[in-house]
Design a protein around this nucleic acid. Structure first.
Length: 872
RNA sequence: GGGCCUAUAGCUCAGUUGGUUAGAGCACUUCGUUUACACCGAAGGGGUCGGGGGUUCGAGUCCCUCUGGGCCCA
């Protein structure tokens, strides 16, 4: 046994992290059964992004749960991955190397990027998709190291030998295989449909990526004309879409417009005849109560277009500009002339042009009415989304199919949610879906959609009969590799083939992390040992995206929930209660607090927050964690130096007889309760409560118990009394270290190393039957009130000294403790310790109910004369 | 507009199926370097549990309602 003279937290992280890694403390044992395994599907962080305290917060919470399960005898499968598939990595690789991806370029083996990136983007190297992915993997290694170092330092008990990336060969193959199986089973399909389109990124966007933003706009009041020449005013924020108008719509109950239903009106400027229709989604109190449907002006337009079977009239293209060709539905000459002014213009300048033309023709009624209104944006974009018509791949998610929606809701109910109320977020989202999951993205970097299309004699693709690769060919890149049965000379020529140019949405890959890390479709035996996973933690902001999409894929591919439990972490709020985010600029760099307070301290802050609770970034809370860790070192040192050792630990009921003193037994009662309740809290994923219980016990142990037993521990009351104390100290310390191990892995393992072999993190959780029987036997017939009552009395004695302004060690010649009859027994049990700790010569116990609030009161305290203070 | 969460000491938060006198830490005041700990210890002050109503022998806890804050979806 080696207890340092001056224990300290400094240096523990490096020392112990190295040891854990070398000894494989957190290694998953593959030779196992499903019952023994506790598997965790951690959402891989984006390593190219920046680190922030939110990472430490939520990953600590998961780690605490993992550590509990491991100590509780589970073979914990806890891998980490990196989500380097997607836009953030794409941008980072571009800027870092000065390269641009063009999938049509051929792969260059051994390609080296420029030494220095060119300043101007025009001068960047243009590389193939495969080269681009290689560069990503190269750069990602550096980014991932930073993350891995942070997580290691934080003490995450991850098995780092299992690490994966969402862009590596395996992930791409699994992602493509998942897609192809979805395709084969009818869960994926292609369709020409209105698509939300980001003109900056030139890509389609899914419903889950939408964001409403309030933007300024203006209602323009514009007349349409009936056959009789009467004006019908509409109010629109998008007058530029007038040439795309396919109908006017009013509410069926709106008496103002009922006479017009079924009639035809003519649009101003463009002279197109459109029908007036009735639909319940038209809002009578909005504007003039009658709206123009400009085919795909917004999502309500799409609904009207679909439900009223309106003609498709699109004027905005993928570049966000008006089509160059004048649409054929504009037939009269002046209308065609008006459109020609718009051809090729952006939405913004087309609006100006149309408004000017309307104003000149005196077709605007009054001044535009300025408003702010919510508009759909891509969450990463900065221009409003357009809706265009395009051909895209979809995965069925229940958005258009009630039966599937019910199935997915049932999966949601099958999952245990922590906290439970988060389930309603999931249900609200599933119930509110209005379309299937669009998975095509018109990006370069990502997992290619693994299909080709045959070209007919005129060179048109046959979308009905896509060519798919064999599963053992995966991963493939259809833009760089020829379709099976064809060769490269037949690409894009009539009678040949063409590759799908798009990539999959990043969620289409990251929704498969259980399958990727669980070796689905590669090692089914292994997959069966970890799937469905036990736990999936994540922030509650990604329920609609990550959590939901993973449920969708597991339902389709595995006919199962992906996990049995899901834990939702809260967000980090800055001291002003605002969510910390990069865009707000209020992000705190995590390494500073790790340097200043240590990992155990930061973990304490994270672990004292309940799941789902948004939590203030509180340095004060970390200071408490640090204090707890230091206190643990010091108290342990004290207990061990008193002579507590492995041999004193009560391990079963047979050892329990040595604990005879009522005060010692009282501590055993508290320990027993703490172990039971803390275990129960962990079983319900309430680690914060477990920490709270253990911490309370720990403070009572150090502040009250240890203060009281010093005299007895030094041998002042004989060997039997000393043996009772040492057994109590050793048993308590032994359990306490393990109870705190999930929260403060460094301090606890350090202390463990002073007097035990192996790691505390591989030691069994204290709730095991034999051990708990020992603690129970040691506390038999005792009451925890001995400790509580004696502590109160000691407090009273100290108060008297404090009020008399004398030193605490001043001798008390005599004092009276008054307590209710039923607590006198408790006081008698610890009387000797009380007198020793308070330095009291004569103590009289008196039955009675004292005045005031406290029911144990110390009075008639007679203090010895103060020590002579030598004049200095 | 719909849904979910939240309101407890100056601050950050506990408070289990309703059950004695509502707790912890920080901060504040006073005292103290006694043999684990000054990155410390001891003692103390500080609460109409957001407002109102109800159920109950009993409500911080359950129900209704109002108000403030936050989030998600329209």
């Amino acid at each position: 046994m080696t207890v340092p003279d001056r224990p300290a937290l400094e240096g523990l992280e490096d020392k112990l992290s190295d040891r854990w890694r070398a000894e494989g403390t957190y290694a998953f044992e593959a030779d196992t059964t499903r019952e023994q395994v506790y598997s965790i599907d951690t959402p891989p962080p984006t390593a190219s992004g920046s680190l922030h305290v939110g990472h430490m917060f939520s990953y600590t919470q998961t780690d605490v749960l993992a550590r509990y399960q491991r100590m509780n005898g589970k073979n914990v499968f806890y891998p980490m991955g990196w989500d380097d598939n997607g836009l953030p990595t794409e941008r980072r690789v571009q800027n870092y190397y000065g390269v641009r991806c063009d999938p049509t370029k051929p792969y260059i083996p051994g390609y080296q990027p420029p030494e220095k990136p060119a300043k101007n983007q025009r001068d960047w190297d243009v590389v193939s998709r495969r080269n681009f992915i290689e560069l990503c993997e190269e750069l990602a290694v550096e980014d991932e190291k930073v993350f891995e170092n942070l997580f290691t330092r934080l003490g995450l008990s991850v098995d780092w030998s299992l690490t994966y990336r969402t862009i590596d060969d395996t992930s791409r193959a699994v992602s493509q295989r998942g897609f192809l199986r979805n395709l084969a089973s009818g869960d994926a399909y292609m369709a020409e449909a209105p698509t939300l389109w980001d003109v900056t990124f030139r890509t389609a966007v899914a419903q889950a990526e939408l964001e409403d933003r309030e933007v300024p706009g203006a209602y323009h009041r514009i007349p349409f004309f009936t056959a009789a020449g009467e004006k019908v005013f509409i109010e629109t924020t998008r007058p530029e879409l007038l040439p795309a108008c396919s109908a006017l719509v009013a509410h069926p109950d709106d008496e103002r417009y009922q006479p017009l239903f079924g009639q035809t009106v003519t649009s101003p400027l463009f002279g197109v005849q459109v029908e007036v229709r009735a639909h319940g989604l038209a809002k009578p109190d909005k504007g003039s109560g009658i709206a123009m449907v400009c085919t795909f002006g917004d999502l309500t337009d799409v609904t009207w277009w679909r439900e009223l079977n309106l003609p498709t009239r699109t004027v905005v293209g993928r570049d966000g500009r008006f089509h160059a060709e004048t649409p054929e539905w504009i037939t009269n000459e002046s209308g065609r002339a008006e459109y020609e002014k718009l051809a090729g213009k952006t939405v913004f300048s087309a609006k100006e042009t149309v408004v000017t033309a309307l104003t000149e023709a005196e077709l605007v009624d009054g001044e535009p009415k300025k408003i702010t209104h919510p508009v759909n944006f891509y969450e990463k974009g900065d221009k409003p989304l357009e809706v265009i018509s395009s051909r895209q791949w979809y995965i069925r998610n229940g958005g258009r199919d009630a039966e599937r929606r019910e199935k997915l809701l049932a999966r949601g109910r099958q999952l245990s949610w922590h906290p439970e109320f988060m389930r309603s977020r999931y249900e609200n989202w599933v119930e509110g879906l209005n379309g299937d999951w669009l998975v095509s993205r018109q990006r370069f970097f990502g997992v290619p959609i693994p299909v080709w299309y045959p070209l007919d004699a005129s060179g048109e693709p046959d979308y009905e009969h896509p060519i798919v690769p064999a599963e053992d060919q995966l991963p493939v890149d259809p833009v760089a590799e020829a379709a099976p049965g064809y060769d490269e000379t037949q690409r894009d020529v009539p009678g040949g083939f063409t590759g799908d140019p798009d990539v999959l949405d990043t969620w289409a890959t990251s929704s498969l992390t259980p399958q990727i890390v669980g070796r689905w479709s590669r090692d089914e035996e292994f997959f069966g040992k970890v799937f469905p996973f036990d736990l999936r933690p994540q922030g509650h902001d990604i329920i609609r995206t990550w959590l939901f999409s993973t449920v969708v894929r597991a339902e389709a591919l595995n006919d199962s929930v992906p996990w049995n439990h899901t834990a939702l972490s809260g967000w980090i709020l800055d001291p002003d209660r605002k969510k910390m985010s990069k865009s707000k600029g209020n992000v705190v760099v995590p390494t500073d607090v790790l340097d200043e307070y240590g990992s155990d301290a930061v973990r304490y802050w994270a672990a004292s927050a309940k799941l789902g609770a948004d939590t203030a970034y509180e340095v004060a809370q970390m200071k408490i964690g640090r204090r707890l860790a230091i206190k643990l070192l010091n108290a342990s040192k004290f207990a061990l130096n008193l002579g507590a050792s492995v041999d004193n630990v009560v391990r079963s009921a047979d050892d329990a007889a040595v604990i005879t003193n009522p005060l010692d037994k009282a501590l055993m009662v508290r320990l027993y309760d703490t172990v039971q309740q803390s275990s129960r809290a962990f079983e319900t994923y309430d680690y914060a409560r477990a920490l709270n219980l253990t911490e309370s016990f720990f403070w009572q142990f150090t502040d009250d118990y240890v203060e009281l037993i010093k005299d007895r521990a030094y041998g002042g009351h004989g060997e039997a009394e000393q043996a009772s104390v040492l057994a109590t100290l050793a048993t308590t310390l032994d359990a306490l270290l393990r109870l705190l191990a999930p929260f403060q892995p460094f301090a606890t393992d350090e202390v463990w190393g002073w007097w035990r072999t192996g790691s505390v993190h591989r030691a069994p959780w204290p709730g095991r039957a034999e051990e708990i029987a020992g603690i129970e036997a040691a506390s038999a017939g005792a009451t925890a009130d001995v400790l509580a009552a004696v502590a109160l009395a000691l407090g009273g004695i100290r108060r008297a000294k404090s009020e008399a302004k004398v030193k605490q060690r001043t001798e008390v010649l005599a004092a009276v403790v008054t307590a209710p009859e039923n607590r006198l027994g408790s006081l008698r049990g610890g009387l000797a310790d009380l007198k020793a700790a308070g330095n009291v010569r004569e103590l009289t116990l008196l039955a009675g109910n004292p005045d005031g609030e406290a029911d144990i009161e110390v009075s008639q305290v007679e203090l010895a004369a103060p020590e002579e203070v030598p004049a200095s």
